[in-house]
Computed example of a mutant assay.
Amino acid sequence: MTHWLTARHTVTLLNVFTRSRYAPYSDAAFVHENDELSYVSAMRLREDELFLRRVKESLPKGLKNNLHMLDLNLKDGPIRLRVPLDQLCATPVNPADPSIEKIRKALARQSELGAMEALVVPAAVGNEVDHLTVREAAVPFAASLPTAFYEDLPYLATDASASDDLEALRATASELGSPLTAVVLHAGEATDDAIVRKRKLVLNYASQIDDEAGAVISGFAANYHGGERLWANQPWLTCFASE
């Protein structure tokens, strides 16, 4: 995001499954069951807002208003699908899930407003059902827009099947005539500085991510000298060839 923002693009984050009871590193366990959903959802919203402020801190004054977040306020997998936490990566996408259409409507609205010239979606490595659902919802737009898939962490670093999942995505894209190419983006920082900064940003989500997971997620950037690897289609490569 810092790469795009410093290149003077506008970035809109579509925050999808934000109604949740998942906050294992918080005090949510002491909240009455009837209040847990609203308590955790509000806590996670504050973390999102803090994340935005921290990202904007490093931007020049004239670019701070180029980063936005749109909250769809949808229920996450454990609530929406009644799936236990330990089954989230073993649950397939439900084609009848109303969330898919709601995500598509939000994307279509951004397109109508002229605010969606390119799209970044989860690669869904690790097969976490919410990530898969977002990817499924974005497929119709990816067919006509510059699109890149980001590598889901910590799954790519920790899940034994993650590399196979990534290869399956690439194989499917090639079969559909839209092969994906690896693109590494940097924010102009030294490797160590980029990793430290990413760790600080990740640990803003203190209710969901502990120090160990934060180290895994941020440390993975060392594989790309502090950058982030995306898997981009040909329109993306053409559109952003000079960046």
Rank of each mutant, 00 (worst) to 15 (best):
D76T: 03
P92G: 12
M69N: 10
V93D: 06
D71T: 06
T91Y: 04
K105G: 12
D76M: 02
D71E: 14
R104H: 00
I103L: 03
K105I: 10
V83N: 11
A106E: 05
P98A: 11
A108I: 03
L81R: 15
L88N: 04
A90I: 12
D86I: 09
P78T: 00
L67I: 11
L88D: 06
L107F: 11
L88Q: 11
V83C: 11
D71C: 10
E101L: 10
P95Q: 06
R104N: 03
I79D: 01
I103P: 03
V83F: 08
Q110W: 05
P78G: 02
R109W: 14
L67Q: 00
N94S: 14
E101Y: 11
A108P: 00
I100Y: 12
D86W: 12
D76W: 05
L67N: 01
A106C: 13
V83S: 07
P92I: 10
P78R: 03
L72K: 03
A108Q: 06
R82V: 14
G77P: 02
N94Q: 08
S99L: 03
N94W: 06
N73D: 07
L113V: 05
D86N: 15
R104D: 02
I79S: 00
T91D: 01
K105W: 09
I103T: 03
P92F: 05
A106L: 04
K75Q: 01
L107I: 13
N73P: 04
P98G: 08
H68V: 07
L70R: 02
G77M: 04
E112V: 13
D76C: 00
